[in-house]
Amino acid sequence: MHVILSYLPENVRVEEQAFGRTARNGAQGTGQFILLVDKSIYEEMYDLNQYTNEQKQNKLENLADAIIEKEKILRDNEEAARLSELKQKNILHLEAEEELFTKFNHFKSTISKTIFKPLFNDKPEKSQQKFIDAFENILKNRWAFWLDKAKEEIDTIENFQQKLNLLNKFDSSFIENLNQLLHNSSFKDLLSKFINQPEEATHIGKVCLSENEISMAKLCFEKGIEYGDISGFSHIALAYCIITLKKKTGEDIKKQSRRELKQALCSLELIKQNLMSNLKIAELLSQSATADILQKISSKENFYQDQITGKLEVIGLQLHYLRQAVRDTVESFDFILHAKDRQNLTKEDDEKRRKII
């Protein structure tokens, strides 16, 4: 096989790959360049203007190999410069990320010592560290979100000044803002100003419960509800906190705790209905799929259905005990574990279910 390259590849790798096609399966082959170059450059380089046009043409043909080598050297130099520039950019990217990480770690350490730790100085050392770790994890989430937003800016850094601008931006938009936000914060301040996700509030609440800090846990779960916790956990945990705290004072806790547990019931019912819908969709897909598709997805589908069924079993049990706690009647539809089981419900049962939802 004979390979002709009518252009000069951007790098040696592509060139060698092209000419490598000539020797497939061990067979011998040949290759050549046929390039369009600026002859005037080489006429001047080799002082050919003193000759006639015919003589110049002959000499250029004799110099063809040398000209190609010159073109390749020029190409290689440009490629080396490009790689050097790319390497420099990558180094700047890595330096920027490393310096940002160093700044964040220093900031986290400072905030932990000046803000988080003083709030829990009256706690045992092990308990104190649990609270600090929990708030540090939230701080790490803030850092991760900021870094994710800055990713495009990091990737476009081309010089030292751009890197410096990004580091200054981190100081002003992240560190200074959080310093102002957290300055002289109490535990309540952290819940209202620093925490802004229901998952964060419930996580801190769980730490409080594990350390038997019921009053603090109550504040956390109230915030979890305020921030939109739809799992029902915050309502259940809040009911527990109300019962535990009120027992000490002898106050009437029945109405408050029932209200929170009923809210949890509503949340779990909604989750259950979503799971039931997903299970029904999975069943319909399996019924309408062709044999080939069914064979490909059957194992995944079964795994998915098993997951949903497992969740429904847990939720059914939770609904059962919650209804007992609020003295509601346990209905048959509390324990539906499969979409087709709904067909066995009486019309009256189904109407009750809809009213609850």
Rank of each mutant, 00 (worst) to 15 (best):
M1W: 05
H2N: 09
I4D: 03
S6N: 08
Y7T: 08
L8R: 09
L8D: 01
L8A: 04
P9C: 01
V12Q: 15
E16C: 04
A18S: 08
R21K: 09
N25S: 08
G26S: 04
G26T: 06
Q32Y: 11
Q32C: 13
I34Y: 01
I34T: 09
L36S: 13
K39R: 00
S40G: 04
E43Q: 15
Q50G: 08
N53A: 14
N53I: 11
Q55K: 10
Q55R: 13
E69A: 15
E71T: 03
E78P: 01
R82H: 09
L86I: 03
Q88V: 07
N90H: 09
I91V: 13
I91E: 12
H93E: 10
H93L: 08
E95I: 15
T102L: 14
K103R: 15
N105K: 15
F107V: 10
T114Q: 14
I115K: 06
I115Y: 05
F120C: 00
P124G: 04
S127T: 15
F131C: 05
D133H: 08
F135T: 13
N137Y: 07
N141P: 08
W143N: 14
D148T: 13
T156S: 06
T156K: 12
Q162D: 06
K163E: 00
K163H: 00
N165L: 05
K169V: 08
F170E: 12
S172M: 00
F174L: 12
I175Y: 02
N177H: 05
L178S: 03
N179C: 07
Q180Y: 05
S185H: 12
K188D: 10
D189R: 06
P198I: 02
P198F: 04
T202A: 00
H203M: 12
I204K: 07
V207C: 08
E211G: 10
E213K: 02
I214K: 01
A217Q: 12
K223R: 11
G228V: 03
S231F: 10
S234K: 08
H235G: 03
A239R: 04
L245H: 04
K246G: 11
K246F: 03
K248T: 06
K255M: 05
Q256R: 07
L268R: 15
L268D: 05
E269P: 01
L270I: 07
K272Q: 06
S277C: 06
K280F: 04
E283K: 07
E283M: 05
L284D: 11
L284R: 04
Q287W: 07
S288P: 00
A291P: 02
D292G: 02
S298G: 09
S298V: 10
Y304P: 00
I308W: 08
G310T: 05
G310L: 06
G310I: 03
L312I: 13
L317P: 04
Y321H: 00
Q324P: 02
Q324L: 07
A325W: 04
A325I: 07
R327M: 05
R327W: 07
D328N: 04
V330T: 01
E331D: 14
E331V: 11
S332F: 12
L337Q: 01
K340F: 12
Q343S: 09
K347E: 11
D350R: 01
E351T: 14
K352E: 12
R353A: 14
K355R: 14
I356L: 15
I357V: 13
